[in-house]
Design a protein around this nucleic acid. Sequence first.
DNA 1: ACACCCCTAAACACAA
DNA 2: GTTGTGTTTAGGGGTG
Length: 650
Amino acid sequence: MYAESVVMETQMPHFIMSEAYPLDFKQKRHYFEKALQVARQLLLQQQQQQQVSGLKSPKRNDKQPALQVPVSVAMMTPQVITPQQMQQILQQQVLSPQQLQVLLQQQQALMLQQQLQEFYKKQQEQLQLQLLQQQHAGKQPKEQQQVATQQLAFQQQLLQMQQLQQQHLLSLQRQGLLTIQPGQPALPLQPLAQGMIPAELQQLWKEVTSAHTAEETTGNNHSSLDLTTTCVSSSAPSKTSLIMNPHASTNGQLSVHTPKRESLSHEEHSHSHPLYGHGVCKWPGCEAVCEDFQSFLKHLNSEHALDDRSTAQCRVQMQVVQQLELQLAKDKERLQAMMTHLHVKSTEPKAAPQPLNLVSSVTLSKSASEASPQSLPHTPTTPTAPITPVTQGPSVITTTSMHTVGPIRRRYSDKYNVPISSADIAQNQEFYKNAEVRPPFTYASLIRQAILESPEKQLTLNEIYNWFTRMFAYFRRNAATWKNAVRHNLSLHKCFVRVENVKGAVWTVDEVEFQKRRPQKISGNPSLIKNMQSSHAYCTPLNAALQASMAENSIPLYTTASMGNPTLGNLASAIREELNGAMEHTNSNESDSSPGRSPMQAVHPVHVKEEPLDPEEAEGPLSLVTTANHSPDFDHDRDYEDEPVNEDME
DNA sequence: ACACCCCTAAACACAA
DNA sequence: GTTGTGTTTAGGGGTG
């Protein structure tokens, strides 16, 4: 639903803007007049027909251009009865003085409605004109296709509008019937409306309906004029429909469709009457079985005539619809806010990187086969634009990205740029767990994270692998690639220390070394710090941030760090450790594993070796949240498709 | 241009 | 011989 509505929202304006204007005023007028003419003719015809053939004769056998019908139907709006029509009605019988009064009152109500509908009508007219124009204009095959799609869009919009109208009408009509008291001696009115004379009303209703039907059918016969007809129905007064409105209202939201549709096309009837489906009456709470459409109509007219009950049901339905619309409106708003938010954010900071990232990532992402977390480290310089990864980028990217292709390599820089908002960390974790989005962290950072999260602060290679796959959906494919990268990183970086254990070898982290890695870069940017904190900022960023912050006052930072990531929970400790370590590091000028280090020290690599380990444990804690997943990175770029076999997990 | 980073790929060595 | 683990080397891309 949302998608549709969104589409509508975005598309419609477009159409209107681009298509509507072309039609010049003369043309419009011409069409309109023509339409009116046709409509009148049809009306007359049908009236004559009725007189001759009897009142109810919905002709469903007529065949009409299916597609057109809906449009015309949609276009129909309640109309005020013309004097002539009134005469017709009178001639046709049935009208008692009371009924006349009712009619009059209804007319008044309708007049009011009409005013309110002005806006809608205008829009409709515009749309209709557009349709006409397109129809006449589109002669080339391609154009026709386009036109067809556009028409569809138009139709949709029309339907939307119609629904809106209907709602307004319903409420208005209700008011008119029940509360409006014309200055006439219309005592009967209220009673009538409330079901005093349902039978009579029904009769009237039926007549009207049949008349309307006839009109429609005849109109439809002039296939070429379909669109025109449409115009007629909406702009030209075919009062009949109005009369029915009160009744129509009883049908609830459906009202729009019911009476008119009944008379309209059989296809419509048999296939898509809103109140009829699968041989069952869909009137709320009814479910009566109707073998065919005819019987359904009978049933509808007899069981769901205008009476208190129907009215009440209709009201309920109205409320339901309103509620839904409200809901829809809210959700739309939300969506809009989300979109604007994203847009702003993306453009805000470094305009290029993020927005592009999303896009690029999409293309690239597919390739994700291997996994190499990008580096946060570089971030120090960039930083600020915190995007809530989870909310947008990632999700969007993931879905789309998966299929896009692209053995494209992304620049890490972009990734680094992507800042992470601490608030999103937790979410990110979940996000990365389920979305195949490449985490914006380097392998080294991730490995470190994995190790630090383990109870013993040490993991076997296999456990590290498991951590990767458990925490990141991204690493569930192309195992060969990213595993190789992991091994490579373990061997390459001094910060990872291999310790021989009873069970074999385990890997630990030498924080000091880790911190040393890129001390030089420091950007005073606070945002960085934030990122680091949130991300658990491994490596450099942390140092940089810390250093930068230290310049001012280390403590504040520290606090922020821990505070900043409330969501982290478990991570908090890890972060603290990092921070502590980093801080010390910076403060003390990296004296090796000096005693002051705090928790981290415990972790200290070298020492770890002797201890017995529980490799299994490492995997457990979800705490990873903290893991560095904070930022959605937009780069997943690798080549996923390229990779031949990497799908396997391990 | 250069130094560094990070990632990926791949060749090897070794042990289970 | 296969597989997992580690180590190294090479090359590409990015950043400061």
